[in-house]
Simulated assay, not measured.
Amino acid sequence: MKITPIEQQPMLIKMNQLQQLSQYKNDIALPLQSFQASDVKFGQVFKSALDTVNDDGVKAANKITDIETGVSNDLVGAMIASQKASISFSALVQVRNKVIGALDEVLKMPV
């Protein structure tokens, strides 16, 4: 399978965004240029992540259904969409586990 330049562009943009998020200065993550610290709310970010994971799952399910019903013969695209949905779900579960662990630690703190 060869990735065409059209498919590479969104992937490169996403990789650059992730690289910017992973850069640290003095052990503090650099803020995104498009957001102020007061503009970002955890609930909004988490809901956005949930919506993205859900969309990935729906797209994968639709592609698999298209393969099964004979509407499409893009088996590779369906498998990639399925793996993308699986990876994004796994990442979301890991984030949720970290948040729950942090909340447990906060609740265990003496007042």
Rank of each mutant, 00 (worst) to 15 (best):
2 K>M: 11
2 K>W: 05
3 I>V: 09
4 T>E: 05
6 I>F: 10
6 I>P: 01
6 I>N: 10
9 Q>F: 09
10 P>L: 07
11 M>L: 12
11 M>K: 13
12 L>Y: 11
13 I>L: 09
14 K>W: 07
15 M>E: 12
17 Q>Y: 09
20 Q>K: 03
21 L>Q: 04
21 L>C: 07
22 S>G: 13
22 S>I: 02
22 S>E: 08
24 Y>H: 13
24 Y>R: 08
25 K>F: 06
25 K>N: 13
27 D>N: 14
28 I>E: 14
29 A>Y: 04
29 A>F: 08
29 A>P: 01
30 L>K: 03
30 L>T: 11
30 L>N: 06
31 P>K: 04
32 L>Q: 15
34 S>F: 11
35 F>N: 13
37 A>F: 12
37 A>H: 12
39 D>Y: 11
40 V>F: 09
41 K>M: 14
42 F>Q: 12
43 G>E: 09
43 G>I: 04
44 Q>R: 12
45 V>W: 09
45 V>G: 02
46 F>K: 03
46 F>H: 07
47 K>F: 05
47 K>N: 14
49 A>P: 01
51 D>H: 07
52 T>I: 14
52 T>D: 15
53 V>Q: 00
53 V>W: 00
54 N>G: 10
54 N>R: 08
54 N>E: 09
54 N>D: 15
55 D>R: 08
56 D>C: 04
57 G>A: 01
60 A>S: 03
61 A>D: 03
61 A>M: 04
61 A>W: 01
61 A>H: 03
65 T>F: 10
73 N>T: 06
74 D>I: 03
74 D>G: 02
74 D>R: 00
75 L>G: 01
77 G>W: 00
78 A>V: 00
79 M>R: 02
80 I>Q: 06
81 A>T: 00
82 S>N: 05
83 Q>L: 13
83 Q>I: 11
83 Q>T: 05
84 K>Y: 02
84 K>N: 03
84 K>I: 08
85 A>Q: 00
87 I>S: 03
88 S>I: 03
88 S>T: 05
89 F>V: 12
94 Q>T: 09
94 Q>C: 07
95 V>F: 00
96 R>A: 09
96 R>E: 13
99 V>C: 05
101 G>L: 06
102 A>V: 07
106 V>N: 14
106 V>L: 15
107 L>F: 10
107 L>I: 12
